[in-house]
Write a protein that binds this DNA or RNA. Sequence first.
DNA 1: GTCTATAGACTGATAGAC
DNA 2: GTCTATCAGTCTATAGAC
Lengths: 222, 222
Amino acid sequence: MATDHTRSAILTAAERLYADRGFADVTLRDIVAAAGVNLAAVNYHFGSKDELIAELFVTRSLATNRERLNELKAAEEAGGGRADIGVVLRALVGPTLRGCLGPDKQRSDAARFMIRASIESVPPIRKIKNREVDHLRKFAAAMKRALPDRDEVDLYWGLHFALAMAHQTIRDTERLTKLSDGKCDLNDVDAITDRVVAVAALALTTATGRAAKTARITRAVG
Amino acid sequence: MATDHTRSAILTAAERLYADRGFADVTLRDIVAAAGVNLAAVNYHFGSKDELIAELFVTRSLATNRERLNELKAAEEAGGGRADIGVVLRALVGPTLRGCLGPDKQRSDAARFMIRASIESVPPIRKIKNREVDHLRKFAAAMKRALPDRDEVDLYWGLHFALAMAHQTIRDTERLTKLSDGKCDLNDVDAITDRVVAVAALALTTATGRAAKTARITRAVG
DNA sequence: GTCTATAGACTGATAGAC
DNA sequence: GTCTATCAGTCTATAGAC
């Protein structure tokens, strides 16, 4: 009982501090001071600083991945085992965008922690992300069912680009706001999700590869 | 003379070590050992570890930005002060992609260092990236000239997405290779540039926003 | 079992001799 | 400009109290 309290006090304090100040600026001593526990408690309960960070990140990403798969499953069941490509892409990027974007003040420690994790990407988090491929294969498979005639390679690129747009939007909120002088509304999560899904879907439902190559050759020749 | 030698020996050794092993695993002692200089020389010549990293990064990104602007300027001059949107986007993402992708063995220390900087994004590098907005404004302006009728907000999102796709491709080469079982060729820089430019240009030359919103509403209602 | 107190190894930074 | 010696701060590990 007392154990669980110490353990969760560390987790809560660490998540908040990392969310506020980033990984580089927060030491274990900061965390145990905020949690009101002893320095060695971190090592006792988690093994190391990196494993503490890993536990925080794994907890949150499992939740996101579960949400993604639930959306995908619901959509495919509603469509008789096959969903529209836009809906598949929405299940892929929607949970992440909803979890990390939205009005600043409303952002939970968990959301802000995940944004940090996306930006700073320390070693323990990178290791976990590298094991994410199996999860993505399920979406690649669903995309294949949605667009059975599309070249497999194009589908992988489409998935890759969809994630790219979503993640960069989370990471670089500030830059886009500055660049557009606040004209791009980074608080309207639904509109952003629409944009990302639309661009990714568009890329998958038109012959982009050939068109681009032609353009490049034209430019080089002409 | 001896000064410059020490200074550049540190820069060369640091760039190679960071490229090989990442920022987290390389200490100042590793760098001075590889450079054959004294530990205190780093602080004497650069002030701190972070300033050494910043100098490495600034040097390389200035070169990339110069290349970008040269391409843009050449294209706009050839087009009488106005370039095709695809050519503008190519000037934006081309230099970065060419600088960081391509066959593993051929990658210079500088290229591998910039990939690390993109993935690990330590504090000194983040600070420099945040000042990149002024440089991007020039591309936003060129995009406005290329598509004068397009809504300004769409142009910013297009620029944002183009960079997102390019950077994520550099960052997550490994994941896409794994996910596609090697079917996506990450060595063909020209083809990748074509893809990124094509998707971004497509997003800017079709009414994506409205189409997506319609799809979402349809889904919610039906 | 749980937790505290403490020690050890390593890091970046710096003062001061040369 | 270079180097030695040393600093304060960090994470990790562990002996031992409760």
